[in-house]
Amino acid sequence: MKQVFKKIIEFILKWLAKIYIFRANPYVIIIAGTTGRHWIKETVKNALEEKSFSARANKKNFNAEIGLPLSILGLPSGEGRFLNWLDILWQGLKLITNRQLPITDYLVLEMSVDKPDNMDYLLSIVKPNAAIITTITMIYAENFENLDEIAEEYEKLIKKLSFGGIAILNFDDERVKNLKNYFDGRVLTYGFSDGADFQAINVKKAMDGQNFILKSLTDSEVSQIEIKRFGNHHIYAALVKEIIKRNFKMSSSDFFSKMLK
């Protein structure tokens, strides 16, 4: 009974989310991969907000069959309570039928796949304009046979990128790097290894964070970056932030405010 109820909720949420995207037409950035998605999601959102765009990202682990459409609609979870879910579906219906639909420039969405063909379902809800892929590892992937099977899920994501879209790939992960072969559009890479479009070198740890030299192949620029966090996953996030800052145009409000100065 519970499973039937869950399927019905999934189905309704999926269609509410699709209608929202059709009406609001936001630019969709999908962050996928096994690890480090959260930190990249946060920095991408920050980078867009620094450019004066409105951006919305998923909360907590709202990144699968039910969580993803809830994130798109900006609604909370019903947490297994029937009446809560009825209220949430009602809120969703009101949202998509609102004449003055609240508009968000960017939707920054984490996507989590934990079993084969999971990606097909998620991509039936939303198509990406940009996709950022972090790593492909077996850490959370007990339902997959091997790494290649997981990589196939991300191939599907890359193949679904819209015309004029952009793929941002971790150059340090061989399988992620090779995803470039499945997309004819613009590809940018990041990582610690030589050859990455945005490369971190000379990483140093300090008491209050880390700093590194950013070497960019795309504009031959070298700059020093400081972050107040520890761990390589934050360096990756900082590299992606730079990609967003340098490759996404500024919002019209930001453009005009800078012109006036």
């Binding site: 964070g209 107040k228 966090r229 520890f230 761990g231 390589n232 996953h233 934050h234």
Partner: peptide, 13 residues
């Protein structure tokens, strides 16, 4: 931890 202004690397710390 980060929500409470404590910054530690989950992989090593």
């Amino acid at each position: 931890l980060a929500e409470e202004n404590m910054y530690y690397d989950f992989e090593e710390e």
